[in-house]
């Protein structure tokens, strides 16, 4: 759990703030994601959990702060000037992946082709290698028999697992999961969480926004509680759930865990 002191964190965030006009969505967030971390982010709706993930991965700009990737500057905004570092910004960014809550797979492609698209067109791998890779990752998430099906014929849980496979095929070193089970029927949630758990156990670095407290308790090595754009509290799950220090954390946990 965690990394050795000599290795820089995969992602380092410092003083990250984001405003939509007068509304401050993220407020001075400091965060380290170390290699092998399974970070779970919890908090009320609109607290900025998703925005935090989307900002780090570059889907949204921010108003202030700095982000480092593998110890090197990745993006920053100082005095209102937003900068993305390096001509290879997009290439470095490929180390990070994201699975969304809805509409993750491309509906006009089979599951196999969904997974193959990135390695083929972005990573530029040879056709045979792309094919093999797709088969391996789909096997790993338990969808070997659905490779040539279209997303419309898959259940919600199968679609999310396929989306995870697609990220695995891209050799991601960090995967964001943005409430990936929140839109699923309850009986389909387990199969997806199971895949995520196995991923965490094999050492994949992940940041998971979720309401699944069981997952947070059992799989996370660190839990972060965000409320109104501020990191209120962070720590190992046993500590945060068992002995929360802040009043807001206690209130939130009381509501969630009843």
């Amino acid at each position: 759990m965690g990394s050795s002191a000599s290795r820089p964190p995969t992602v380092q965030v410092e003083g990250l703030s984001k405003s939509f006009g007068s509304l401050e969505v993220l407020s001075n967030v400091d965060l380290s994601i170390n290699s092998g971390d399974a970070l779970v982010v919890i908090g009320p709706s609109g607290s900025g959990k998703s925005t935090l993930c989307r900002t780090i991965i570059g889907l949204e700009k921010f108003s202030h702060g700095r982000i480092w990737l593998d110890g090197q500057p990745f993006a920053e905004c100082v005095d209102g000037k937003h900068v993305q570092f390096g001509a290879d910004y997009r290439r470095r960014r490929l180390a990070m992946g994201m699975v969304f809550q809805h509409f993750t797979l491309f509906p006009q492609l089979t599951v196999r082709k969904n997974v193959e698209l990135g390695p083929a067109k972005v990573l530029g791998l040879a056709e045979q290698l792309v094919r093999e890779r797709a088969e391996v990752v789909l096997e790993r998430v338990g969808l070997a028999d659905k490779m040539d099906a279209f997303p419309a014929h898959l259940s919600g849980g199968q679609k999310q697992r396929a989306a995870i496979a697609r990220e695995l095929a891209m050799d991601r070193r960090l995967i964001f999961f943005d409430e990936v089970t929140s839109a699923l029927d309850p009986e389909l949630v387990h199969e997806v969480l199971q895949v995520m758990r196995e991923l965490a156990e094999t050492g994949m670095t992940m940041m998971v926004v979720t309401h699944e407290m069981g997952f947070a308790r059992n799989v996370a090595n660190r839990v972060i509680f965000i409320d109104q754009g501020v990191v209120v509290e962070a720590g190992p799950p046993a500590e945060l759930f068992g002995n929360p220090r802040h009043e807001r954390t206690k209130t939130f946990l009381r509501h969630i865990l009843t």
């Binding site: 509409f103 993750t104 006009q108 698209l117 990135g118 972005v122």
Partner: peptide, 30 residues
């Protein structure tokens, strides 16, 4: 075309032309 589709394509590393060609226009046409 749902926003998440474009974002997924972007996160996958597809550039504007690739996104349009492989993700957006096929769906838009349908």
């Amino acid at each position: 075309v749902p926003r998440e589709q474009v974002e997924t394509a972007d996160v996958l590393g597809l550039g504007y032309v690739q996104r349009m060609r492989y993700v957006v226009v096929p769906q838009a046409t349908r």
